[in-house]
Design a protein around this nucleic acid. Structure first.
Lengths: 341, 341
DNA sequence: CTGAAAGCGCTTACAG
DNA sequence: CTGAAAGCGCTTACAG
């Protein structure tokens, strides 16, 4: 209680507690790690001493000595992004359940910064890495996989050499199909000009494939990262006769809705809009956005489960897991005038 | 390129690169750390070898040996929360600028889980800890501060013994004042029944103080964490004559707006609503929410700056930094009928 | 400018 | 069940 406050220098070490508990460092270590072959006496003495002295285990030293690690790293592109932030939150919950410690690192948009983040995680001795980002370069994932078990989560990357967990592409096809079923035959799809945006690219590709197969005419709205030009581009596709806009995600859909609102263009009266992700405020009934909900809880669950298997078993084969999403019926998708619903 | 893929066991160590570069480990270490007193020859040889061999420095071992650390830890309650997620993202950007590595840990709602997160960070040898959470127990912050420099960010905690950075409470007062200026005299304020929600508590207290001083009548809407009962509570305060509801943050404000919308109660016609935070989709013109924008970029900037000072200087005194926010005029705050605006 | 040596805090065969 | 000892990968006075 009444301790000097400038004494944050000397951290109490395992040796300190071994001494206090009158046992050897070996026994202290074993007791602290819940090793079975320790007498109850010894265990209690050690645990009490640790508690009393406020011991904090030096994880770096521990994993150095054991060349094992109980902590897994999560590389996230941007926790400021509602979807990935939510995903991270669920991954946290899952690793908790499994008893792993979680270390998050965020890697910006460049390959370089992602590499740095991975190296940072690796440097801290994580036993495995989960990469949750719509913008991973395959090269970053490959690099990580060279060192520790790696699973790529909710990204567009799906190489046979990589473990991955993502939403079933069926959902993307299904959404496209639903739009067509509403009578739309001229449909604009937003695309990203960012080469790293693999999740978006994969999604758009799935949309387009389905639309084309269904015989719809498609237009692409190419968006840069912070596109301020979106208004003009929307006007253009509208002029060219598009009756629906399928946005790559809810955030983009929201930008579209905002523009339509400001321009006095009725939605879905004049043009329908769909999103993707279905997370947080984007789900608000006030928006009424027609979208697909990505099951971030299940995605996180599968990712950690897969990681756990790789950490424990020797199963050296990689796997690609798909989880189902859910269609959210909103008010922004309407039927084309004069068509059957 | 064509390496065996099962060989992820042996990581290349500094010794490997020292050998490859024909120098001693000492020199290798110095070269890698950018130590000035190394010949250009040696430095180049080492750096080349490191690059070629794909060296990843073991940060744990490094900080173990030097008892120093260049990485700082960020404890975040929930990155799934738009505000804290965004804040984390900015903190990341700032630590990058300063050349720190960042490790994130998320601590759930309980003191216990927060403690665990802090211990985890500490165990990984971080040199300092930033706690960004609206729900920190003072005890957690105190604990962290016992070991490393600690700054509490955007929380309600503001003890003289703790470094803190938060939005100027003036902004909270100002918002309350603006509401009164719109002629409202009977105002409901949402409050949280969660004892850990210090940021919310501080905010509510500031609202109430200002409202009471301004002579308004106030009612408190007490909300549990996942309150499903919010509808009834809103009805009650409306029945009792409230003409405005000041929500503790935008997310709560959104819930209120959704209910009003579903119940067909006009906003701001029959009742005005304000939020707080002003981040991301909550800022959408489609909501038109009247709120206050927290300057997360500045908050992050000040927090990291403060941390940096504590890491480098010896300045042992703690400081409390306040940054200004910005009032966002939306459409959800209206004037009371028959009052001056 | 460079190396040999000791040590950071832990774990883990190895021998009791 | 327990301890002495060696070693994990690094850094840093200390002596050249």
């Amino acid at each position: 209680m009444a301790r000097d406050n400038a004494q944050r220098k000397h951290r109490v070490s395992m040796l300190d507690i071994a001494t206090a508990a009158h046992v050897s460092p070996s026994t202290a270590s074993r007791a602290l790690n819940g090793h079975p072959k320790v007498s109850d006496e010894a265990r209690k003495a050690v645990l009490d001493a640790a508690e009393k002295l406020g011991y904090v285990r030096n994880l770096g030293a521990a994993s150095l000595a054991s060349s094992q690690s109980n902590t897994i790293g999560l590389l996230i592109r941007d926790v400021g992004n509602q979807f990935y932030g939510g995903l991270a939150s669920h991954v946290q919950a899952e690793t908790d359940r499994y008893g792993f410690d979680l270390l998050l690192a965020t890697g910006g948009d460049s390959v370089e910064s992602q590499m740095r983040a991975v190296r940072n995680l690796l440097g801290h001795g994580v036993g495995g890495i989960i990469i949750a980002s719509g913008r991973v370069a395959a090269q970053v994932a490959d690099y990580a996989a060279k060192f520790v078990p790696t699973v790529v989560l909710a990204s567009g990357l799906e190489l046979p050499s990589l473990n991955s967990v993502r939403i079933d592409p069926q959902m993307e096809a299904k959404l496209a199909h639903i739009v067509v079923d509403h009578g739309h035959r001229n449909i604009a799809v937003t695309a990203s000009s960012d080469s790293l945006a693999s999740a978006l690219h994969a999604r758009i590709a799935n949309f387009l494939t389905e639309l084309i197969v269904a015989g719809a005419e498609t237009t692409i709205i190419s968006l840069a990262n912070d596109d301020t030009d979106i208004d003009k581009k929307i006007d253009e596709v509208l002029d060219s006769g598009a009756t629906a806009i399928m946005a790559g995600n809810d955030s983009i859909a929201l930008s579209v809705l905002e523009y339509l609102d400001s321009a006095g263009i009725a939605c879905p009266g004049e043009v329908s809009v769909t999103g993707f992700d279905g997370i947080g405020p984007y789900r608000s009934s006030l928006f009424g956005l027609t979208t697909v909900e990505q099951p971030i809880d299940k995605l996180a669950h599968e990712a950690v489960k897969l990681m756990s298997r790789h950490l424990h078993d020797e199963s050296p084969h990689t796997s690609q897991v798909l989880v189902r999403g859910r269609f959210i019926e909103g008010r922004t998708l309407g039927s084309v005038r004069g068509s059957a619903n």
